[in-house]
Each structure stands twice: as structure tokens, then as C-alpha cells.
Design a protein around this nucleic acid. Structure first.
Lengths: 219, 219
DNA sequence: ATATAAAATTAGACATGACTAATTTATGTA
DNA sequence: TACATAAATTAGTCATGTCTAATTTTATAT
């Protein structure tokens, strides 16, 4: 039961969208995949026929057991390849997303396992995201969004939730990376923006869109 | 001017078929790609429109300059990935072809270069085939087909011309690998089969199909 | 030279996965 | 409640790359 490139991308998108507790609507999927809702509905029907998801207007799209395993398998491969690209090929962490997007679709029975072993069985990818095990289990570790940290709190960047190239480039510019130490100087009530100091540098203002997408470990 | 997966496969096939001096006919391409001549003709037209090849009934398909560069680029990537799979991920040389067939289509400006550096700039892939440089130049070394060797000639396996899984499995069974020493014991005039000794082992009979696809360095 | 076979070509169809435009269903607000 | 808007859905179209079936061209053998 091999899946097409497209099917795999839909399953992945549905998985990610399903993590937040909102219902996974055709519109949401269309936005995530940058295509249109009509196309999405066509594909949802196909995925439902293959028992990879269930879909109805009220519930939205929900991954079946096999759909979720398939999604986790793609995500596992995506993140393992990201580790490879950064650790072995010396790419920057903000450059690897699009390449991993392609590599994740390579089909081979043994590949993920062999790559995993070669990389030393990493638990997290270069963005700090957990790499699912073969059985689909996710390694977890305590973390909060930066937006949830209190004023004067010191914390360490553990991972980023948005791994799009523009966001990562923005972080690079701010000199924020995994492990960067951030002190919350002030939280603006009205728009949730924050003034922070990065690695004890001068204060900078960042939006809630930024702080919502950074996961930190509190000191 | 990025090429599709399919276009890349056609260019590669045309390149390989063009190496032997036969004309590259729709039939030959169809056989190589395991599809049918009608499909091939459709694609040849598209490739011609993009100036990647020229095609007419008499000459067959001929790669243009840009078509050849594109083909060499795919072959370069294919062979680099094969080195990676065998050297780093511990695959057997008979297992990697189908995976490399997928990996060769990954698009990224820097990838081939970075992979090449990571692998230590290898000149030959695990099957002994030369890896084109970025500029398309092929490393060369003297070699002949085993079928051209004389009786009693001692030689060393330098590469294989057919890298299909069935052929490689057959070689594995015969215990023939890169560097194996082969002595030609007898050549049968009538069907060009040969009796050979592999690494001084007991004599074995092999067909001309086999000896035509093994390249050797004469002692 | 001509019959026969093989190869090349054309025409028409199909699957996949996308699109636009029109329609229906929900949701939210005055 | 009723209108306005957003979302979901349907119908029809399109590009890509494939196929089969028929037809034409080329090559081969007697």
C-alpha cells in the first residue's frame, strides 16, 4: 500500500493541524498546503476510501490508525534527513526544510532505520522537534511557549514550532538558535508583544507571533 | 528551467543509450524505461520543445548540450548517492540502485556539492562507474569488457556496465565484486560463453551476456 | 520486387491532482 | 429573524504522463 507523494503530504499536514485542538477543515488544509479547498476535498475522499482518514463536515479530517502511522513515518524521515543535512552536510538549520520535504518521500524498507543508526539515533531534529521512533512514539521533554513565560523569567530555547524558511531566517537575524538564553524583560498586555534580551544582549521587541512559535525550557 | 522527474529519467536513459553507438530509437527508450513507444514519442516532442534533445526518425534522439549537462547532473547525483548508501549506510552494492533512482531527483542547488565533499570527492561509485564532475567531465581509466579478454588472460574487475538488481545479485552469487581477479580459462567460439576462474576458484561457465557487462583491467 | 515483420506515429482514452466558477451550507451579526 | 460572509461542495476543465488500438513507415527476407 504505497502512498503517492501528494497523499503523504496531505497526511502530514492533517497530522500537524490535528495537534492543535482545532478541527482540521478543508480550508485549514488548503492554507497549509497552499492549494485550494476544492482540491483538498477531492483528496480527502481518496484518503477516506483508502481508510487513511475519516472525514465529515462536522468533525473535519481525522487520521485513522494507519493514517497516523503513515504520517509519523513521513515526519520521522523528514526530521532524520534534517539531522543529516545539518550535521553531516553542514547546511544551516534554516536551509534544510525544503530539501527534507523532498527526501521524506524516498521509499525504502530499510532506509529510515539505517539513516537513524548512521546518525546515532538522535531524539530531536535541528529545530528541536522530536523525532518519532519506528513505532510512532515521540520523545518528549518539558517546554513552554516563550509567550507563556513571565516577566523577568530566564529561559533557554528548546525548539521552534514554525520551521518555515522565513521564520528561521528571522531567528537567524535575531541571533536566536537552539540553546540561546532569553530573558523576558517586559510583556505588553495589549498585543502580547515582548521585550526580550537574547544571550544578555540589548533589549529587542518581538511579536506574539514570534513568541508563540518558540518553545523554551524555563530556568 | 527545472525538469520533472519523468523528463530527468528520459534524459538519463537517452544518455546511457547514446553511449553505445546505436541510434537511440523510441523502441530502445521504451525498453529501457519499461514503458511503450507511444508514450516515448510524446515525451520526445516535449523534450525537443525544451531544446533538451533533437529527434527525428533517421537520427533518433540526440541530447543537446543542455540536455547532456542535465543528464550528467542526474547521473552524478545517482552515483554520489550510491556511494553514500554503500559507504555510510552499509547497504550492499546490489541493493542501492532503486533508492538512488529516487534520490537522484532531489533538487537543491548546493546538495550535490555538499554530498560530494562529505563523501571525500569519490571518482567511482560502488559499481566502479565514474562519477561525473560538476562540469560534466568523466574520470576515465583503461578497461575492456571481459568478453574481449583472451584465453589465459588474468584480469581484475573494474566495473559493471549493467547495474540492475538481478545482474548484481547474480554476481554476488558468483562471488564476483569490484577487484575480483578473473582468469579466462576457455572461450567458446560458437556462443561466446566463457569458462573462468574467479579468485583462483574452481572453473565456472558464464554467458556472453555476463562477460559483456563486466569491465576488467588486464594484468 | 514484394510480402512480412518490426518500428514509428497518430488518435483517443484514462488516472492523478490540480484549478475556476457556481452553488449550497454554516456562522455570525444587526 | 434575516442578511452577509465564510466555508464546503459540486461540476467541469486542464496539464502531465501514461496507455491501447489503429495506421503508416521502414527494414528484412525470400
Amino acid at each position: 500500500m504505497k502512498k503517492t507523494y501528494s497523499e503523504e503530504n496531505y497526511l502530514k499536514a492533517i497530522y500537524h493541524l490535528g495537534k492543535s485542538d482545532n478541527k482540521v477543515s478543508p480550508k485549514a488544509i488548503a492554507d497549509a498546503l497552499e492549494n485550494n479547498p476544492a482540491s483538498v476535498i477531492d483528496m480527502l475522499k481518496k484518503l477516506q476510501d483508502k481508510d487513511l482518514i475519516s472525514y465529515d463536515k462536522v468533525q473535519g479530517a481525522i487520521l485513522s490508525r494507519s493514517g497516523e502511522m503513515a504520517a509519523l513515518d513521513i515526519i520521522r524521515k523528514h526530521r532524520l534527513w534534517e539531522v543529516f543535512l545539518v550535521e553531516k552536510l553542514q547546511y544551516g538549520w534554516d536551509e534544510v526544510h525544503d530539501i527534507a520535504e523532498q527526501l521524506e518521500h524516498i521509499h525504502d524498507e530499510q532506509l529510515a532505520k539505517k539513516l537513524d543508526d548512521f546518525l546515532g539515533n538522535p531524539s530531536f531534529d535541528p529545530h528541536g522537534d522530536p523525532i518519532p521512533a519506528q513505532n510512532g512514539k515521540m520523545p518528549v521533554y518539558a517546554s513552554k511557549r516563550l509567550s507563556e513565560a513571565d516577566e523577568n523569567q530566564m529561559c533557554k530555547v528548546g525548539s521552534v514550532r514554525d520551521t518555515s524558511t522565513p521564520f528561521l531566517k528571522y531567528l537567524k537575524q535575531l541571533k536566536v538558535g537552539l540553546g540561546s538564553r532569553i530573558r523576558v524583560i517586559e510583556k505588553m498586555e495589549f498585543d502580547q508583544s515582548m521585550i526580550i534580551s537574547i544571550d544578555e544582549g540589548e533589549p529587542k521587541t518581538v511579536s506574539s507571533k514570534m513568541t508563540d512559535n518558540i518553545l523554551v525550557i524555563l530556568d
